[in-house]
């Protein structure tokens, strides 16, 4: 199990798109070597929180701490070089670059291309077969493998995964989560966002449920499983006997 040293810590994060507020003071801690699952319905603010965590979006209030240091306003490329690796929603790949060129883009964190290729091709032999193909022309599963390869090959301290399962066949999702579990066992801290809880709860140490820009529950996967249905149905107590 995880040690109790926080590696990535979000404190009182508020964020908004112009006038529309998406996060209302969110606290979340990812401990060294642990897997945290962030669950919640559409529009809950999960992706926004991840964007704040990896520097793509500046919070309007609150602090982002990485290894104990405040990193608010640090550019995403700097955070990436310091070990925060985010695989964004909907295939984190460059469609107009070849597979090999995509892998070359993963070398900014200090690993060499041959290392990246070794790790990626060993784990996903399919990518080796397609190394000269344009990444955008591969199937969805293959593209997600390429995106995952960055999480594996760049040796990150924190791996942030946004909706890994989106648009993929269940069997591929299962495969990908098997890999997530292996990465976690190697000591990488992982923050993973999912709409569909079942795939991710099996690998998570802790989980948090987010609704309307707040974290409403936080605990072990077992504690939370029963709460999930409420969260997805809008968290309206009087609705439980309603139409759904």
């Amino acid at each position: 199990m995880s040690q109790e040293t926080p590696l990535l810590e979000l404190r009182g994060i508020r964020a908004s798109y112009d006038r529309i507020e998406a996060l209302f003071g969110v606290d979340l801690v990812v401990n060294q070597g642990s897997v945290v699952a962030l669950l919640g319905p559409n529009g809950a603010g999960k992706t926004t929180l991840l964007k704040v965590a990896c520097g793509l979006m500046a919070p309007s209030a609150g602090d982002v701490l990485y290894a104990g240091k405040r990193v608010n306003g640090t550019r995403p490329e700097e955070l990436a070089r310091r070990g925060i690796s985010m695989v964004p929603e909907g295939r984190g790949i460059f469609p107009n670059l070849s597979v090999r060129e995509n892998l070359k883009m993963m070398t900014y964190t200090g690993v060499s291309l041959s290392q990246v290729e070794e790790i990626a091709f060993e784990r996903f032999p399919r990518l080796a077969e397609r190394s000269r193909q344009l990444a955008g022309t591969m199937s969805g599963g293959e593209q997600q493998m390429l995106a995952m390869a960055r999480g594996l090959a760049t040796n990150p301290a924190v791996l942030i995964l946004d909706e890994l399962s989106m648009g993929l066949a269940p069997i591929i999702v299962e495969e990908l989560y098997e890999i997530v579990a292996q990465v976690a066992r190697s000591g990488v801290s992982i923050l993973v966002v999912e709409q569909f809880a079942s795939s991710v709860l099996g690998v998570a140490d802790r989980a948090a449920i987010m609704v309307h820009g707040h974290i409403v529950r936080d605990g072990t996967p077992q504690e939370l499983e029963s709460e999930l249905s409420n969260a997805y149905l809008g968290n309206q107590p009087e609705r439980s006997g309603g139409n759904k």
Partner: peptide, 9 residues
Amino acid sequence: ALASLNGAR
């Protein structure tokens, strides 16, 4: 955005 997530500037 993805390029910066990879660490490119």
